[in-house]
Design a protein around this nucleic acid. Structure first.
Length: 422
RNA sequence: GCGAUCGUAGCUCAGUUGGUUAGAGCGCCGGUUUGUGGUACCGGAGGUCGCGGGUUCGAACCCCGUCGAUCGCCCCA
């Protein structure tokens, strides 16, 4: 006879409860509200896709694809993957559902994503994001609107100590030329770079630019700058984005070394990052980016679609929730205390009646009769309504300071007791 | 994938140089008390000291492994 053990939760998953769950819901509710203001349409996406949806769009060599995806074969032998991000799946849906007819299409969604990473503060294997995408819009105004929405969302969440860090990666040609120049520049000093940067030199030279390693720092200042490689169109595009942001009142800083990890990004790239020394920076630790995204004009082609311009961003709900502060537990309008046994039917009926009047109500009718009132007091409910028997009849008494609630609770309960006493 | 710290009741933790039945507060359950029913007091339930090996006469405490958490690197939201 073996002892029963309780299975543990999967590493990197979370059971969100209490104040954390309230903060999580607050983030999602605020996002839903803001997204409507900007007329982004709600979409619901599958949690898994064919593996190639992600492999082809994110790039086979990216860390996400090469070592962080939850991939498995289904019973039909097909390779499927739990979504590590939203964009690729939405792009796929745009193509397979003929959503071109709605272009430019503004959509928003939220939900769980999965990445096999080492869990840390603000980083989980199952994590949650809110996401906004504009597909089929080549104009810089789309970038501006999207960023204005992100900015307003953060403000409405009460997060005021983060700033938009903005960069451009140029068009495909600009980006390639810059990349080649970076490889050439860093190859010359390869031996003096950190091991990690030596590896990055082959895989993702852009990443060397934001290396934190002291050995790399001396070479960063004189590294080739993207601005020198931008085509005329690319710089005009970036100029239009920045002036649009200024007009919309979105403050931003230029971040020349900001790059994106995934292959599909072009032109605008951005992250909202806590200001140095701010409360948000302290709350997030090393997971500094709270919202990030950019333009991905190349992505739909990589999935076999026609060349289609697009921009989008995503933000980690857990990270945002850490910044909105702990919201208080909210209290019930009424705590109904039944100081007698055998009144279960009355209790059930009265609770239903209270709730039908839109009063949030909690019932205390178990355990020590003497302590039921204690528990109701501690629950923090606005009105405590006590039912007990006096001279053979059930009587009720309401306690609390909120006159409006007091009246509506009393009204409902008087009726209930009158019926019960008949 | 790499490094560091940590893992004792439901929760927060204490546990002296390894030594008899592992403790506290809060919470929970029951009771007593109270002339403002949220107070105070008493009692009770609840622990394979993460898990598995090892060292030792003896381990919560030392060693190894493993799982998990936390912090950082990498990467990213």
């Amino acid at each position: 006879m073996s002892k029963k053990t309780t299975p543990q939760a999967i590493r990197g998953t979370q059971d969100i409860f209490g104040a954390d769950a309230e903060a999580f819901a607050f983030v999602v509710e605020t996002f839903e509200r803001v997204r409507r203001l900007y007329r982004f349409r709600r979409v619901e996406m599958p949690v898994f896709e064919k593996t190639e949806v992600f492999a082809r769009s994110l790039g086979e060599t990216t860390d996400v694809v090469s070592k962080e995806m939850y991939s498995f074969e289904d019973r039909g032998g097909e390779s499927l993957t739990l979504r590590p991000e939203f964009t690729a799946g939405i792009a796929r849906a745009y193509l397979t559902n003929g959503w071109q007819q709605y272009a430019p299409l503004k959509v928003a969604t939220h939900g769980p994503l999965f990445r096999y990473e080492r869990p840390q503060k603000g980083r989980y294997r199952q994590f949650h994001q809110i996401d906004a995408e504009v597909i089929g819009a080549a104009e810089p105004q789309a970038d501006v609107e999207l960023l204005a929405m992100a900015d307003q969302l953060l403000k409405e969440l009460g997060i005021n100590d983060v700033t938009l860090h903005l960069n451009t990666l140029g068009d495909a040609a600009s980006r390639e030329a810059w990349r080649a120049a970076l490889i050439e520049y860093f190859r010359a000093v390869k031996d003096q770079l950190s091991e990690e940067s030596q590896e990055r030199l082959e895989k993702n030279p852009l990443r060397i630019l934001d290396s934190k390693d002291l050995r790399d720092k001396p070479f960063l200042a004189d590294a080739p700058k993207i601005d020198a490689f931008l085509s005329e169109e690319a710089s005009a595009f970036f100029a239009a984005v920045t002036s649009g942001l200024d007009a919309a009142g979105v403050t931003w800083v230029r971040a020349e070394s900001l790059v994106r990890g995934l292959d599909y990004y072009r032109h605008t790239a951005f992250e909202f990052i806590p200001d140095e020394g701010s409360a948000s920076a302290a709350a997030l630790g090393s997971q500094s980016t709270v919202l990030g995204g950019g333009r991905y004009d190349g992505l739909l082609e990589s999935l076999g679609g026609a060349p289609t311009p697009a921009v989008g961003w995503a933000a980690g709900i857990e990270r945002l929730a850490m910044l909105v502060g702990t919201s208080e537990d909210d209290w019930a309008d009424v705590a109904l205390v039944i100081e007698e046994e055998g009144l279960e039917a009355l209790a059930a009926k009265a609770m239903r009646a209270l709730r039908e009047e839109a009063l949030s109500a909690e019932l205390f009718d178990t355990g020590s009769i003497r302590k039921r009132f204690d528990k109701a007091s501690k629950s923090g409910a606005s009105i405590i309504y006590v039912v007990r028997r006096q001279d053979g009849k059930l009587v009720g008494q309401a306690k609390g300071h909120d006159q409006g609630l007091w009246d509506s609770v009393t009204k409902v309960m008087e009726l209930q007791l009158a019926e019960a006493n008949r």
